[in-house]
Design a protein around this nucleic acid. Structure first.
Lengths: 365, 365
DNA sequence: TGTTGTCGCTAAATCGTTTAGCATGACCGA
DNA sequence: TCGGTCATGCTAAACGATTTAGCGACAACA
């Protein structure tokens, strides 16, 4: 394998590449001078233009390789008004579902020759404004945004100048009129509720989610729609609002179990909340799929390897990540095209965390 | 809250910002013409130079705000040879420990006014070469790299031209002579082994990790060092090599339990492997911390909320993420400075997945 | 009155690339 | 020999910012 001797302490930083000149010191002009050609010819030759003779082209490309030429995209962008950068403004990246999204988006964009410039708002509108502003200074060809909670239409409108594509992903600002890629959350959560209903549950809680973000509103709507479809009255005491985090899910489950008349099942805002709930169940000596029924949301990778494997709603995150990338590319190509929504229909994945209703035995204090 | 009416289907993409002109249409020259000043003055005024009179400065800044001026960093970079971009070349981002790293790095860099340009190699050297090459075309001020398995010194050397900082993070290519930020993995895993030894274990397995990456080599070395320190002979049949993934950890645990003489404890390459192992134990009707002892590595957020909470080695990922960012900033400021290694010493976090040795009862087939 | 200094600003060069339009020379046919 | 075509490659002007030498105006001072 690699060398194993440690670097001499205090050694100087390694210099230029063995290939020769350092990145950025070889320019079109340099090559032009050296080859006795004009920069125009070099530029065309490197891009395989038919306007330059075969022989010249080969000579130029060979020289460029030999001298270690690395194109300067910033300079090119200045001239062409196209950076091949796509700015990604996410509200969070540590949440695994967003990581899967980021990975998919990066993959799809890099395939299309675009590079990702990353900004994170950490769910803070002020920081989001700063971040998006900075990203804009790099003149990305497009913005892919998952808006922070409480974002308003103007926060995005400011970006949407002629020729800059703006695409919302996962979350959206309703009525903003931008392209959107995400999942149909109303249908998704309703699917989970229907599954529980079919198993015989009537007392079904909801764990996590809050109204400041579109996904929170939609998933809550899905929960209510699911109940309504089964003719089950909505009981607000069974709804545990909160951000979709493990710790919150755990707390929420504890509160549900402490109710006078606990539910026999619950749907969750996301898998993360479900994991937290699952842990609380374990800690209480209960097993999901035997003593209680739990349905997650998202179906992140972790869900299938849990014990018990989590019954959850698969939302096709990588798919709509790629869809978002595609929407961005399409809008870059044609800024005037009609607004498009790529809304994936989720699918229920039944694993082992659900079962027929069992009255919950209270945990001894 | 936000508007809730859906966008009219097929509506045209929203146009310019309400603020007025679209991003990029207002330039220094435009402002200069409008205000009857030179671009030099505008440029200086916007950057609060003392060379321009207070009154002028205010007037310029006001006009810039009113007209919606957004600086073009690409153009500025061309002139100043400084992009304020830091390129991040990671081998993977879906692994939660890398997500935590990415988040910390992004946070530290954005605090310093740098923006992150992202590239992912997906553990593939060829793709890494392509990706890093593309990133280089944007002339980042620095590269932060976690090299793909099997990377060689030359793969990084090619980037290290005069004035471009290269910092290795998490993983390194031994002897490459670049700055490095990560954890002292040899010490770390040895800590875990020592803990198990102190509990009375003599038959200790290792789950996950492989030789193609520096962390794999170091953690394995830490395992052997820990055994040696306790005078326990090294038994290769107890070592389950593999990438640090949940599914692999689960398989590895299954194989350990199937041994004629199973270990009573194991250390893991990372928490992810440990979670997999934990799941296999649960599935086998065993409980870590009662029937078997398991020590993770990294202490990602998930570790503390597991049931049982995972005893693991805390590696200060956000801390060394920030350290990596700092190293990059320092090398940008002074390219000639001596190589620096920021190697955090991990700490054992005892939770509930370890206990005194218990002979493992075989799972009935 | 002439010198010196200060202040506020500008002109012009520069970064590395792309591209429209032009120049060159070879070749051909008349 | 002359004009016309072609193929090829060049010239020059952008793109939008930063930087620095230096200019004009005015005040202070001897």
């Amino acid at each position: 394998m690699d060398e194993t001797n440690p670097p001499p302490p205090g050694a100087a930083h390694p210099g230029a590449s063995p290939a020769g000149a350092p990145i950025g010191k070889v320019t079109l002009q340099g090559l032009a001078r050296e080859l006795g050609l004009s920069t125009a010819t070099i530029s065309l030759a490197l891009r395989d233009s038919p306007m330059v003779a075969e022989a010249t082209r080969l000579k130029v490309q060979e020289a460029a390789r030999a001298r270690g030429y690395v194109a300067n995209r910033g300079a090119a962008a200045l001239r062409t008004a196209r950076t091949n950068i796509v700015a990604l403004g996410l509200h969070d990246i540590v949440n695994p579902s967003f990581t899967e999204l980021l990975a998919a988006v990066e993959d799809a964009l890099s395939e299309a020759g675009k590079t990702v410039l990353l900004g994170v708002s950490q769910e803070d509108v002020a920081r989001q404004t700063r971040t998006l502003g900075t990203l804009a200074e790099y003149r990305p060809d497009a913005f892919l945004v998952s808006p922070a909670a409480h974002s308003r239409v103007e926060d995005l409108k400011a970006l949407a100048s002629t020729g800059i594509a703006v695409v919302q992903v996962t979350r959206e600002i309703e009525g903003s009129g931008f392209d959107f890629a995400g999942s149909d959350d109303v249908t998704g959560v309703a699917l989970g509720v229907a599954h529980l209903v079919a198993l015989g549950h009537r007392r079904i809680g909801m764990i996590g989610g809050f109204g400041a973000i579109s996904t929170g509103r939609k998933r809550f709507a899905g929960y209510k729609a699911g109940l309504a479809a089964a003719g089950i009255p909505f009981d607000p005491t069974l709804v545990m609002e909160g951000p979709g985090l493990r710790a919150e899910g755990r707390k929420a489950m504890a509160r549900l179990l402490a109710l006078d008349e606990p539910p026999t099942a619950a749907v969750c805002f996301n898998d993360l909340s479900a994991f937290g709930a699952l842990m609380e169940l374990q800690a209480a000596g209960l097993l999901a799929g035997r003593d209680f029924s739990l349905v997650g949301y998202d179906d992140i990778e972790e869900a299938r390897v849990w014990y018990p494997p989590l019954t959850t709603v698969h939302t096709f995150i990588p798919e709509y990540g790629r869809a978002a990338a595609t929407l961005a590319l399409k809008r870059i190509a044609d800024p005037g095209r009609p607004v498009e929504r790529a809304e994936m229909t989720p699918e229920l994945v039944v694993r082992a965390s659900t079962c027929a209703p069992v009255p919950v035995k209270r945990r001894p204090l």
